[in-house]
Design a protein around this nucleic acid. Structure first.
Lengths: 207, 207
DNA sequence: TTTACAAGTGACCAGGTGGTCATTGACCAT
DNA sequence: ATGGTCAATGACCACCTGGTCACTTGTAAA
């Protein structure tokens, strides 16, 4: 949590600090991320940085909180535009989510790294604070959908769909970390057509 | 890659070094893992450690290679015991895989961390060396299965099943990192019953 | 112009890191 | 006993970390 002083400096400076922090932590992770580098990139002294935030952890948690809130609100805001039919709805939702990740690579990486951290104390705090919240966005967006005509338990079906989305998404982002030259547009289009293929298979099977 | 000297010291010592490395790297990750700590835990000097392995990376890659080979062979060796029917086969395979992870928590964590590392150079080497191999074990074990009677493309179905397994598995291992008191046996039994529930749903849907 | 006070600074600290290399000492052939 | 070989050693190096604090600087009131 920042000190009062952080909020009293001008907004430009606040943004620069958070932007530099985002770049640093998303590319090097929490542990390897360097407060020296953040201060340097922002153009302020390390002394100031540590008067705005008491510890590296405070800075990181404040940054993460903002980014997660951005993500959740980007997803929630899209709710009105989602079709009512389950599989159409899932496809649009997944497209929107992946588009957000591709449009916000640093934010996306920060979140991914935050939840794939291992062992450390801070990981537990993150899990305790956001674990539930992060899971719930998908279910809450699907809550109003009628699934009485489908073969199988509601929760089971929702999870199978969700994990299939995960798998498809990972196969895209995984390729991004390995291949040197990738065209985001191409990957996205491949994802879209796979999305339709997999959802059609599930729809045909479960209807 | 170790030097010749490493293989010439007695096997007990070799094992102690690898064991200490496994403990260190699996609990703290590659970057934070300390060669000092490994030397200390093994009871040898740091100088010796660096005559056996030229760099930290060499040590880590050698360790990882052994562990991955262990895992792959543990999976392959099980092939003969797998039922021929697809969903029964998947259930047994998944049980066996999760059991291995629970029985080898350090090895399991090492592999997970190796493939969830971000950004660094070594990650790319790992991906290049094992990316394909790790994906293929599941497909190769399912290769001989007859799926002509199922509704949908073979590859699509196999992926949906695989990602469903992933989701179930993550929900178990995820709970292990969060909850303080968990009984492995209970988690495993919960996993087993969920496995059957989800595979039954998929089987009913796809048949 | 002087004073008072808060904000900004970067040299500094203790504690780590991966890696090196002059020295040691155990062993063995002579 | 001597000389030679070579694995083992740990003090040492340069570099980095998160965090501190005595100091400088800017500003505004008196």
């Amino acid at each position: 949590m920042p000190t009062n002083l952080f909020f009293e400096i001008d907004d430009q400076k606040q943004k620069m600090i958070l932007d530099a922090s985002l770049t640093e932590f998303s590319s090097r992770g929490y542990t390897a991320g360097s407060t020296n580098q953040i201060a340097l990139a922002t153009g302020i002294s390390k002394g100031s940085l540590f008067t705005y935030f008491n510890t590296k952890e405070d800075l990181y948690m404040y940054l993460l909180d903002g980014v997660i809130r951005e993500f959740l609100s980007a997803m929630s805001d899209f709710e009105a535009e989602l079709p009512e039919e389950l599989f159409q709805r899932v496809i649009k939702y997944a497209e929107h989510e992946l588009a957000w990740h591709l449009d916000h690579p640093r934010e996306s990486m920060l979140i991914v790294q935050a939840f794939s951290m291992n062992g450390s104390e801070i990981r537990k705090k993150i899990e305790a604070k956001y674990g539930a919240e992060e899971q719930d966005i998908y279910y809450s967006l699907m809550e109003c959908v009628d699934m009485t005509h489908l073969k199988g338990d509601r929760q089971v079906i929702l999870n199978i769909i969700k994990w299939t989305l995960n798998g498809l998404q990972d196969s895209v982002t995984g390729r991004m970390t390995v291949e040197k030259d990738f065209v985001i547009k191409d990957l996205f289009e491949e994802y879209q057509s796979n999305l339709i293929l997999y959802m059609d298979t599930l729809k045909a099977a479960l209807t």
